[in-house]
Design a protein around this nucleic acid. Sequence first.
DNA 1: AACCACTCTTAACCTAGATTAAGAAATGAC
DNA 2: GTCATTTCTTAATCTAGGTTAAGAGTGGTT
Lengths: 158, 158
Amino acid sequence: MKSITIKKGQIIQHPGDANPKVYKVVSGLLRVYALDQKGKEHIFLFGPEGWIVADGVPLNAPAVLFIDALEDSTLEVTDRVQQNLDKITIDPLIKRISVLQNRVIMLLSASAIQRYEHFEETYPSIVQRVPQKMIASYLGITPEALSKVKSQKAKSKL
Amino acid sequence: MKSITIKKGQIIQHPGDANPKVYKVVSGLLRVYALDQKGKEHIFLFGPEGWIVADGVPLNAPAVLFIDALEDSTLEVTDRVQQNLDKITIDPLIKRISVLQNRVIMLLSASAIQRYEHFEETYPSIVQRVPQKMIASYLGITPEALSKVKSQKAKSKL
DNA sequence: AACCACTCTTAACCTAGATTAAGAAATGAC
DNA sequence: GTCATTTCTTAATCTAGGTTAAGAGTGGTT
């Protein structure tokens, strides 16, 4: 385990990287994302302070996702295999599975509005810290659609 | 750990059940799914023989998903907390995370056709064993849309 | 064999969200 | 403070996939 500090915008993992690491976010905010064939970003995960962020590929497999910093950040970096041996990992793994299960169910069953409201409730602090277009990307919709959704919500409250 | 056998159609877990179990599929085929507000099923996971199937809720939380049998099945049932203590769980957990990460990325970035082709490649045996409408549900589309997609694929091959 | 329940396909129509485009507002660099 | 870049909003148009409906297999059950 070692500590590093990185600047906003810095990319710390690329797809194809061998031996992807586990990052514990001490301060700042990380983003995990994929690019599709058309070069469009799809945000897989936001990692604010306290979160453990890692590419979920099988052990020994190369990375498939990008990780970069949305804010200047301080991280603790651990090797996945090492961490695995240490057996400290089970709880965070179960938490991650729970988050992902929810995400899949939401993507399968909920409309854009419902997904946005769920996100607001679940990660209120993230909403304040990242551009709307990134939240749209996390939700699987375009920034324009999110903008529309929000103005409809506002109107319906009058 | 104990072994049980169940019949096709039998529901072995309901949302709200306390202390959800871990099921190792010895033979047969399980299905994990959610119902939305309109009563529509959304398939979260197929569990053929060899797979370990469980609701991914946090330990001690009640179940949120249904589990039933799509074929007569034999299962080994374990308590999650017990299994956790046994530390045998890390590898299956990482595998599960990898599967879920892929699923989320596909749902965010790929069209219905692409998701279907990916499913065919990844789970060819499942395609043979379950009705099309269940594959559609797993992919997050309607049976009608899947039917359309497949006929378009067939035409484009001529 | 006749019936029932399910599954799949096709087609007409509809809607949520994508795309394109342009202007307004916010943020940042110098 | 000014200019440039990025972000957000609005509006017009388009399209993938949803909805509804009806007919054609396919089994299973008695």
